[in-house]
């Protein structure tokens, strides 16, 4: 996940459900400033909402970092949601529709993946990073 140099724009600690709202508002605002469409802003904000809620459900607390990056002719907005929880045992299984170890609908991770261009999971017990990326072509 450190394959490129990231420009950190903002960071939100996730401790209570109010922080879910703050994270997604900041994510949405960054996507708007970066020139993404209303639809993409909404998708990105919704994906952040899903992943940060997972932090509160499974790991009690964490952080949401927001970045901007330019790479290979693409402008990207990235949200990295980090927690120190028990980790995701089987990321592949966690990505399948309807699978949940909590009491949710099992749509959080797979649903969020369908909303953004990339969703990467790097999980070990004690540290989980979920990275969500939206990107758009920059010409010239």
């Amino acid at each position: 996940m450190d394959k490129y140099c990231l420009n950190e724009i903002d960071s939100v600690p996730i401790k209570c459900t109010q922080d879910i709202v703050i994270s997604r508002q900041k994510g949405r605002e960054l996507a708007r400033k970066s020139g993404f469409s209303v639809s993409e802003q909404t998708r990105f904000a919704t994906a952040i909402s899903e992943i940060t809620r997972n932090v509160l459900t499974y790991a009690t607390e964490g952080d949401c970092h927001l970045f901007e990056n330019n790479l290979d002719g693409y402008h990207m907005v990235i949200a990295q949601i980090v927690d120190q929880g028990p980790g995701i045992d089987n990321p592949k299984l966690a990505m399948s529709d309807g699978y949940s170890t909590g009491h949710g609908l099992g749509l959080g991770l797979p649903g969020a993946k369908r909303l953004v261009h990339e969703l990467n999971i790097d999980s070990t017990p004690g540290k989980t990073i979920v990275e969500i990326i939206i990107k758009r072509r920059v010409y010239g």
Binding site: V38, S39, T42, R43, E50, L107, G111, R114, L115
Partner: peptide
């Protein structure tokens, strides 16, 4: 329901 919200909900599977 806003257009962006409706498409987001369907893509998520709700």
């Amino acid at each position: 329901v806003k257009p962006a919200v409706s498409s987001t909900l369907v893509d998520m599977g709700m």
